[in-house]
Design a protein around this nucleic acid. Structure first.
Lengths: 116, 116
DNA sequence: CTGCATCCTCAAAGATACTG
DNA sequence: CAGTATCTTTGAGGATGCAG
C-alpha cells in the first residue's frame, strides 16, 4: 500500500518478519486510537458524512479525524465520495477491502466482551 | 481486569460503548507497539526466558519489555515463572486466556499477508 | 541474569482559529 | 459543511545507571 516501511515496526529483525509480518501490517492499517472506531461505525451504518462521523467519535479532534480518514483512504479501506454542491457534502464508506476486516473486528469484539 | 477505565478510550460516548466495547477492550489488552509481538513469540515457542525474549524483540528496551510483560501478566495473558536460583532465571508463557487470542492473531496475520 | 528508577526525547494527538 | 494551519501538550518509549 503506502509507506509502511517508515513505521516504527521497521526495526524488527528478520525472524520476526518471517513469522509475523502480516500481523504487523494489519496493525499498522487498523491500529491506533481511532481507526477501528471509524471502521466500526462505517461497518454498521454504510455511508456517513464527515459531520456525522465526528458526532459519533466523541473526543476526536477535527484534525485527527481528517488525518485518520485520509490514511484509511490511502490504504484503500474507505472511499471518499464528494458531492459537488454548496454547502459541501462528503460521505465516507467502506471499500470491499475495508469490509473484509469485519471478521477480525467481530472476533476482537467477542473476545473483549467475553473477557472484560 | 484492571484499570481499563483510566485509558484514553474512556472519553468515548455511550453509543460507542454499546456497540464496540469489546473491541476497545481487546485493543487495550493487545494493542500498542510490542504486545502482539511478545504474544506471537510465546505462542510459537511456549516458554521463553526474559533474555531470550529480549534477543527476539530487536529494538525493544529493557524498560519496555519489563513494562509490557508486567501488563500482560496483570491482564492474565502470560504467566511469569520464577526459578529460585542464582543467577536468576525467569520464564514467561501464555496462559489459557493468552492462547485464546490465537485465532485473532492468525486472522490478522492472514489478512496482512494477503493485502500487504 | 533479571529487573527497577530516573531522566529525557520526540512524535502523536489536542486546541484553536481560520477558509473555500 | 468540510476541511486546513499553527501552536501546544502529552505520554509512549529510549538511554542509562543501579540492585538483588
Amino acid at each position: 500500500m503506502n509507506n509502511r516501511k517508515e513505521n516504527s515496526t521497521n526495526t524488527i529483525n528478520e525472524s520476526y518478519w518471517k513469522d509475523h509480518c502480516g500481523i504487523a501490517f494489519t496493525l499498522s492499517a487498523i491500529g491506533g486510537r481511532w481507526k477501528i472506531n471509524i471502521l466500526s461505525y462505517l461497518l454498521h451504518e454504510d455511508k456517513l458524512r464527515y459531520g456525522e462521523l465526528r458526532k459519533r467519535l466523541v473526543g476526536i479532534s477535527e484534525r485527527m479525524l481528517i488525518a485518520k480518514l485520509k490514511e484509511l483512504e490511502q490504504d484503500k479501506l474507505v472511499n471518499r465520495i464528494v458531492y459537488q454542491q454548496v454547502p459541501p457534502k462528503v460521505e465516507y464508506e467502506l471499500t470491499a477491502l475495508g469490509r473484509s476486516l469485519e471478521n477480525i473486528l467481530i472476533l476482537m469484539d467477542e473476545w473483549g466482551e467475553t473477557n472484560m
